[in-house]
Simulated scan of single mutants.
Amino acid sequence: MTEKWRCAHGFGLSEPCRECELDSARETVARWGERVDSARKVIAEAAGQSVMLKVAGKPFRCQCGCNVLHRLSGDRDLYACNACELQYEGQG
């Protein structure tokens, strides 16, 4: 019964199989290729723009409770909440 639930390399579902992981990675690259690289670039750029602001020396929180915002591209003093996308204008 348990042999029905094993990978081609003999590992059970709860056991990690490096060969299956490698096969999956190769399939992803073959199927999505360039899109994966461009998506990773977008994520890396967005992560670099995230900030935690302080107002009057205290950590700032959005109305939704999130305290991490990101700077909107091209506008130095405009920020958006990472959770709800509400925008805030900074005074600098």
Rank of each mutant, 00 (worst) to 15 (best):
E19C: 13
V51P: 01
P59W: 04
E34T: 13
C7E: 05
F60V: 02
Q91C: 03
P16N: 13
C66Y: 02
K58A: 12
W5V: 04
M52R: 05
C64T: 12
V42R: 15
K4F: 02
D23Q: 15
S38Q: 09
V36G: 03
F11T: 00
E27W: 12
L22Y: 04
S38D: 06
F11Q: 05
C17Y: 11
M52I: 00
L22N: 08
C84S: 04
A46W: 10
C66R: 07
E85S: 09
K54Y: 01
E27T: 13
C64W: 13
A83G: 02
A56S: 12
Q63C: 10
R61F: 00
L69G: 03
L53Q: 03
S14R: 13
N67C: 08
A83R: 14
R26K: 15
R31N: 09
D77R: 01
M52P: 00
G65C: 05
K58G: 01
G33F: 02
R35A: 15
Q91I: 02
A8L: 07
G90A: 12
A39F: 05
M52L: 02
A47L: 15
Q49M: 11
H9R: 11
R6G: 02
R6N: 11
Q91E: 09
C64P: 11
A83V: 04
F11M: 04
L86P: 00
G90D: 02
G90L: 04
L72T: 09
C81A: 14
M52Q: 07
L86N: 07
R18Q: 15
W32A: 09
C84E: 04
V36Y: 12
G65R: 05
G65M: 02
G74V: 08
A44W: 06
C20L: 06
R6Y: 09
Q87A: 03
E3S: 10
P16D: 14
C64N: 11
E45W: 02
K54M: 00
L53F: 05
G65H: 01
K41C: 06
R31F: 04
E3I: 07
H70V: 06
G12Q: 10
E3N: 12
V55N: 06
A80F: 03
V55S: 09
Q91V: 05
R71V: 02
L86Y: 02
R61T: 01
S73I: 12
A46D: 11
C62W: 00
Q63L: 15
A47I: 06
A80R: 10
G48W: 01
A25S: 07
G10W: 09
R26Y: 07
G92V: 13
R40L: 15
D37F: 07
S38W: 03
M1K: 02
E89R: 14
C62T: 01
R76D: 14
R35T: 13
P16Y: 10
L69Q: 04
